[in-house]
Nucleic acid binder design. Structure first.
Lengths: 391, 391
DNA sequence: CTTGAATGCTCAATACAGTTGAGTTAATCG
DNA sequence: CGATTAACTCAACTGTATTGAGCATTCAAG
């Protein structure tokens, strides 16, 4: 991800305002409907300040008046909520063979989605295809281009040449360019670039099961296995933007030590099926096989449970998340089976009586998870305070 | 750690100032000696704003004028540096059998340290002992109490009752109290509470080998094995303050899968030695055995290398840190031997050509690492922007 | 039903902190 | 030696948030 977003450090009047605007929007998102006095209490700002900011937001169409509150005595508050039509974000996922795109509104609802095939992955082809795809999907969604907040782009990681680079999954022709800047220039809007797992994790936070969670880990079944960690509401990116490569950690499996994604991933189950002559290229295929109780698939699930459980113990003890979420390009049925099947270790910091959420949950599934997550990255930007801080 | 520090969200004039002060101090610390124009460029503030802030800091005695710069043409800048005497922090480490304390100055230099035995771990005994110890060490260091910025306290984790709770290492009598608030009230100063590994990691950043690193992982050899992760200059705490319990993750060792700290920790080496009738309670004992090439110790080192290497691969792929640092209550000689002995996996996001630092390094070692780290937590506060942000 | 307390909110004045623009000083370069 | 570059200061300005007075609306107690 090459940490694009300009890291601004000092606070001044302008940046304070933008910071507070993001905060107020975040509070409104979190609460659903909320009055100004409550926002002020939650944010440590004066009522007057919140009042000024909300009237700005109202004028900009980002929030709407949603009636009066009732509880208790005293003057009932005016309640505000996000305006779904207040802004939109495009999400784009670039794969070696296709481009996926989707549009999310400010409330995180999907407005449109598309899949276009790619003949080549060179920069020109991708850029031209993307421009046409953008126009197409914006028209299809019937929204005004002015209301686009930006675009999120998901590309195969890891970024830069690392020990995990792998010509099969990487995009040739993109090694020597910063994709964030490239797309920002060509699309003419702010662009965030992330890997699939991080984007999918953000989707859970914006419109999924993790809307009220600040610290969680998301295990993403893509081609391999990815991890997105959100800590205190922020994506954990790592020094070079490559954090979360969980697929490559060594885990025990049937007495041996193997890389996690060699036994727990979409590719691994498809390989296991193929060895028995079963072809299951799509998520729907897998769903069908699962519903039919296919023995090869069931055996794979049994085998995968142990290393997956080990991986979750590792995640819990290293990150101490509120929960671990399983999602991505496997059918919901299989994800749910895995969640039910896995015996979580008792030797974990996550084994505590005062938990508010289960240790393991299923999140969004299906092929579009990462694409919509890319858009969620942009939507999230609106809700996050802007004064970045580095020591 | 019970995330004490009041999480303020909104920005106003007062908080902006304090934020910018922290930022400017952080820049000065990072650079060593720096002029106002450079600070302005690094922070995105105007020269005038930086000028106002530095003159405040100068007046408060936090920084000092350190002559003029020379390079290039134009008016040479006035260079500022941290004033070591500008402030002090007390670090305290509470163990079941003793209290350690140390004092650090603003530059992270150790001014004094002490070890006092404990007869009991009940709240009263510890609190009373701590108050006397504080007075004693402040007198010994010969500093003014007014210049104390606060205290950092290291206590055995994990915090709260979890699946890892273990009556042998926990402190009885502290389950139902928030230690941060308790100590803040009784010591009459701001208090930060952390576990040993996190504190030690912060020590590396304030006065150790990681002074210019923003994202790194610190493997801490205490009783067991702990992990402190600093990401973007902040400690990664986890949802319940228990992140970094790396000692309990499953790793392969000699064909079996075991909890990491059962084979890689001070306790594990001491147990191995004891089984052969060798008693080595202190760090110095271990150093002596290592220098003598003791065969039991050497065998243990050989055995530990494989699981430790696996753990480092996990850390690298999950956190993508700039480096991994080994430190804590083992002699420097053994840490260095381990760093040299470990064969790092090539299948890691950290295996990249453009690295600025080695993948594995040794940090501070010895019994006081965590104690001084506790003080470093407080010193660090001075250097960090204050506008906290939660979405 | 009246009165008072509690609560949400507005308006106008104020304060704080950073920015801007016009100098001043001090070094290097040609 | 003059032109140029760069750091810095001074004073006026601007943007945001805060403060305090006051109004509106609701509930509850008498």
């Amino acid at each position: 991800m090459i940490t694009t977003s300009d890291i601004v450090l000092g606070a001044n009047a302008e940046r304070s305002r933008s910071h507070n605007r993001g905060m107020v929007l975040g509070q409104i998102r979190l609460a659903g409907r909320i009055g100004r006095a409550d926002i002020a209490r939650a944010s440590g700002l004066s009522i007057q300040a919140v009042s000024n900011i909300t009237s700005d937001l109202l004028e900009d169409g980002l929030i709407v008046d949603r009636g009066r509150g009732t509880a208790g005595r005293g003057h009932p508050p005016v309640l505000y909520a996000l305006n779904p039509d207040g802004g939109y974000a495009i999400g784009v996922e670039i794969r070696p063979d296709a481009i996926f795109a989707g549009i999310l509104n400010l409330c995180g609802e999907t407005i449109a989605s598309e899949r276009w095939s790619l003949e080549s992955t060179d920069r020109d082809t991708i850029t031209q295809t993307l421009l046409r795809l953008r126009d197409h999907i914006v028209t299809k969604a019937g929204i005004s281009e002015r209301k686009l907040l930006g675009a999120g782009v998901v590309m195969p990681g890891p970024f830069g040449a690392t020990g995990l680079s792998d010509s099969e999954s990487d995009l040739p022709g993109w090694e020597d360019v910063a994709p964030g800047r490239w797309f920002a220039e060509h699309l003419g809007m702010p662009v965030l670039v992330e890997n699939d797992a991080n984007a999918a994790a953000m989707a859970e936070r914006i419109s999924g099961i993790a809307q009220s969670l600040d610290t969680f880990a998301f295990l993403y079944f893509g081609r391999g296995l990815g991890l997105g960690v959100i800590a205190n509401g922020r994506l954990m990116a790592g020094a070079f933007g490559n954090a979360g490569e969980i697929g490559h950690i060594p885990v025990p499996c049937a007495g041996r030590t193997v890389p996690l994604e060699s036994v727990v991933s979409r590719l691994s189950v498809q390989r296991a099926l193929q060895q028995q002559g079963i072809d299951a290229p799509s998520t729907a295929d897998l769903d069908r096989l699962f519903a039919a109780g296919d023995p090869v698939l069931m055996t794979w699930l049994d085998t995968a449970a142990e290393p997956l459980s080990a991986a979750i113990t590792i995640l819990e003890n290293l990150f101490d998340p509120e929960t671990v979420i399983l999602g991505g390009a496997l059918p919901q049925s299989i994800l749910e089976h895995l969640v039910g099947r896995i015996r979580l270790s008792g030797r974990s910091v996550s084994e505590r009586a005062d938990r508010l959420h289960p240790r393991l949950m299923t999140g969004a599934s299906g092929r579009l998870t990462a694409t919509l997550g890319a858009a969620a990255l942009v939507i999230n930007q609106a809700f996050v305070p802007k004064i970045a801080d580095l020591p």
